[in-house]
C-alpha cells in the first residue's frame, strides 16, 4: 500500500516569481522512513504542508493511503497525521501532560484513558511521567521539549508522521541521541515517517530512501547507497562531493 502519492503536484505562492514545487510526483510506501533533503528554500516545508493541507496545491493530486486528501474532511485528514516542527509549538500555558493530551481531549476520551495514554507516550519518548508531566514547557530543555512534541504528535496513533527539521535547533549530542531513538521508534511502530532536513548526514543516516529537492523539483529519490554510488548529475553530485570534503576534513585529525 502507498502511504503518500504525489501526482504532478505544483504550488506557487502568490506574488512569487517561481513555483515552490513544480510538477512533483513520487510515492512513499507504508512503513518507509523517507527523508527529504535540500537547501533552504527548495520547497521541503511546502511539500510537507501540502500533505496535511496547511497548504493547498495549485494543481495535481495528493493521495494519503490511497485516498485523495482533497476529498476527505480537513480535520479528519489532520487527526490521522502526526506533525512535528523545529519550533515545536507546544502550548506554553499547558503542562506537559495537557500538551500531550491535546488531541485525545479534543476527541473527548475519558480521563483514565487519557492519563494512561499520556504516561505511556512520555515513557516512549524517554521522559519519566512522574517527573515531567506537571511541568510547563518553559521548564524543559530544548531536547525535552521536542520529546514532548513527538509524544503529542503520536497521541492518537497516526499512521504517518511528518517532521520538519525537528532536531534542527538542538545541540549535536542531543540531536544524535534523538536520531537514534527516532530510528528505534520507527522500527517498533512500523509507521510511515517523512522527515525533512537540510543536513545531508542526518538525511542519509535516518532515511531508508532520500528524496532530494532542488529548486522545487526532485533531483533524485533513492536509497542512500544508490545516491552515493550514482549521484545524479549536477546538484546531487556537488552535494555528495561537499559531504566527502567534510569527511576528509575530519579524517585529517584521526
Amino acid at each position: 500500500m502507498n502511504a503518500v502519492t504525489f501526482q504532478n503536484v505544483s504550488k506557487r505562492f502568490k506574488g512569487a516569481g517561481r513555483s515552490a514545487l513544480e510538477n512533483v510526483s513520487f510515492t512513499v510506501e507504508e512503513g518507509e522512513f523517507v527523508t527529504v533533503l535540500g537547501p533552504s528554500g527548495c520547497g521541503k516545508t511546502t511539500l510537507l504542508k501540502l500533505i496535511n493541507r496547511l497548504y493547498e496545491p495549485d494543481s495535481g493530486q495528493i493521495l494519503l493511503f490511497g485516498e485523495d486528501t482533497q476529498g476527505v474532511d480537513l480535520v479528519k485528514v489532520r487527526r490521522g497525521i502526526g506533525y512535528v516542527i523545529q519550533q515545536i509549538g507546544l502550548f506554553p500555558h499547558w503542562t506537559v501532560a495537557e500538551n500531550v493530551a491535546t488531541v485525545p481531549k479534543l476527541l473527548k476520551w475519558d480521563r483514565d484513558r487519557i492519563r494512561a495514554r499520556t504516561d505511556e507516550l512520555l515513557r516512549l519518548v524517554g521522559l519519566e511521567p512522574e517527573e515531567y508531566k506537571n511541568r510547563y514547557p518553559s521548564q524543559l530543555s530544548g531536547g525535552q521539549q521536542q520529546r514532548v512534541g513527538l509524544a503529542r504528535a503520536l497521541a492518537v496513533d497516526p499512521k504517518i508522521m511528518l517532521m520538519d527539521e525537528p532536531f534542527g535547533a538542538l545541540d549535536s549530542i542531543t540531536r544524535g541521541k534523538l536520531q537514534q531513538e527516532l530510528l528505534a521508534l520507527h522500527r517498533e511502530t512500523g509507521k510511515t515517517f517523512l522527515f525533512v532536513t537540510h543536513d545531508i548526514e542526518e538525511a542519509f543516516l535516518l532515511g531508508g530512501r532520500v528524496l532530494i529537492l532542488d529548486g522545487g523539483k526532485i533531483a533524485q529519490f533513492d536509497t542512500p547507497e544508490a545516491i552515493i554510488r550514482r549521484p545524479a548529475e549536477g546538484f546531487v553530485r556537488s552535494l555528495v562531493e561537499s559531504a566527502r570534503e567534510k569527511g576528509r576534513f575530519w579524517e585529517a585529525y584521526l
Partner: peptide, 23 residues
Amino acid sequence: VPESVLETAAAMGMEEGQIWRKA
C-alpha cells in the same frame, strides 16, 4: 502568539474557534 503554536494547533485538527479559545 507564536506562529508555530497556531500552526501545530491547526495541524492537530483543531478548528478555528478551538484555536482561538484554547490558545
